[in-house]
C-alpha cells in the first residue's frame, strides 16, 4: 500500500471531555490515503468515524482533545496554528458534511457560497472568476450552472448534496472528506451522487475519504477500507480482500448482517449485544462481549495490530 500518500494518519487518539467522564472516541488509529485513492471508513453508529474525519480538517469541537499525527505534505495538521489550517481548508483538504440543509446557509444564494469560499483564500477575487469556478464545479457535480442564483431551499435534498460536493471540489483540493454523503437520500438519488464520485475519481487527481455505515456504498466506491469499532481500527485492507475474506470477527459479522437483494437468501443475521460504553471501556478487546471466537486472553489483554499479508487486523486470532 505504499504509493505516494496524500494523507497519513498516525496513532490518532481523540477524547471528548464531558461532565460525566471522558469519552474515548478514537484510539490509536493509523492509516493512509494514496493519491487518487478512495478510502472508506465504516462501522456502526458511534464508533468514531465522524470524529476521525473531522480531525483531518481540525474541525473538532472545543471539548475534544486530539493527539497523534495527521500528516499532509510533510506537516502535522494537528499542531499547525489555526491560521494555517484555515488556508488548507477547502483549498487542499475539503469536507462534505452529512446534512446539506444545515451546512448550507439558507439566506445565501449558491453563488454566494462559492464567493465566500473563494474569498477566504483570495480576498479580492473577481466575480467572473467565482462564476467560472462555480460553474465548472457545479457541472462536475451534475448541477446546471443556471442555478447559481438559486437559494438552498429551492433544491431537492439530492441537489443540495450535489451543491455541497461542488463546493467541496471547487478549489481542486487534493483530499476530500465525505461524511455520509448519501445517507437520508433515496437509492436513485444516492446512485446519482455515487456517479458524481466515480466521475471525480476518474477525472480528477483527488483522494477521497468516504465515511459511511453503508457497506454497499463502500463496495461500490472504495479502494481501501478501514473498519472501526468502538474507536479502534479493527481491520484495514483493500476492498476486494476485505469483502472476499474478512479477517476480523467484527468485519465478518458486520458483512453478514447487511440485507442483500438475492431472492434465495432469506436469512437475516445480526450481531447480538451492543457497543461498549466509551467512557468506561473494558480492559481487553473492545469486541469481547459480542465475539463468537473470544478466548480468555481477549478479556484481559487488548490485542495490538497484527499484519497479515498486506492487511492489518486487531485481533488475537492472528497472533
Amino acid at each position: 500500500m505504499s504509493q505516494e500518500n496524500s494523507l497519513e494518519i498516525k496513532n490518532l487518539n481523540i477524547e471528548y471531555l464531558t461532565r460525566s467522564g471522558t469519552v474515548h472516541a478514537v484510539k490509536d488509529a493509523s492509516f493512509s490515503v494514496a493519491k487518487k485513492e478512495t478510502l472508506g471508513i465504516v462501522g456502526e453508529s458511534g464508533c468514531g468515524k465522524s470524529t476521525t474525519g473531522h480531525a483531518i480538517l481540525k474541525l473538532l469541537p472545543s471539548n475534544a482533545r486530539a493527539k497523534g499525527e495527521i500528516v499532509y505534505k510533510g506537516r502535522n495538521v494537528l499542531t499547525m496554528p489555526e491560521k494555517e489550517v484555515r488556508h488548507l481548508r477547502g483549498k487542499d483538504i475539503s469536507i462534505v458534511f452529512q446534512d446539506p440543509m444545515t451546512s448550507l446557509d439558507p439566506i445565501m444564494r449558491v453563488k454566494d457560497h462559492f464567493l465566500e469560499l473563494m474569498r477566504a483564500h483570495k480576498p479580492n477575487v473577481k466575480e467572473e472568476e467565482v462564476i467560472q469556478t462555480a460553474s465548472e464545479a457545479l457541472e462536475a457535480a451534475g448541477v446546471s450552472k443556471k442555478r447559481l442564483d438559486n437559494y438552498p431551499f429551492e433544491f431537492s435534498g439530492g441537489m443540495r448534496q450535489r451543491v455541497m460536493i461542488a463546493l467541496g471540489i471547487a478549489l481542486k483540493p487534493n483530499v476530500i472528506v465525505a461524511d455520509e454523503p448519501t445517507t437520508s437520500l433515496d437509492v436513485v438519488v444516492q446512485e446519482q451522487i455515487m456517479e458524481v464520485f466515480r466521475h471525480l475519481k476518474k477525472t480528477k487527481d483527488m483522494s477521497i475519504v468516504l465515511i459511511t455505515h453503508d457497506l454497499g456504498i463502500v463496495a461500490e466506491l472504495a479502494d481501501k477500507v478501514v473498519v472501526m469499532y468502538a474507536g479502534e481500527v479493527m481491520e484495514y485492507a483493500d476492498v476486494y480482500n476485505l469483502y472476499k475474506n474478512p479477517l476480523h470477527p467484527y468485519t465478518q459479522l458486520l458483512l453478514k448482517s447487511v440485507p442483500n437483494i438475492k431472492i434465495d437468501d432469506m436469512e437475516l443475521h445480526h450481531i447480538p449485544g451492543s457497543l461498549p460504553d466509551l467512557k468506561n471501556l473494558p480492559p481487553g478487546c473492545r469486541f469481547y462481549d459480542r465475539c463468537p471466537f473470544a478466548k480468555d486472553k481477549c478479556k484481559k489483554e487488548e490485542p495490538p495490530i497484527f499484519k497479515v499479508d498486506k492487511r492489518e487486523v486487531r485481533c488475537w486470532l492472528y497472533e
Binding site: 437509492v187 436513485v188 444516492q190 446512485e191 454497499g216 463496495a219 461500490e220 469483502y243 472476499k244 437483494i261
Partner: peptide
Amino acid sequence: MGAIPIPDPT
C-alpha cells in the same frame, strides 16, 4: 432495483 448498492466490490 438497479440503483441498490451491492456489498460486493467484484
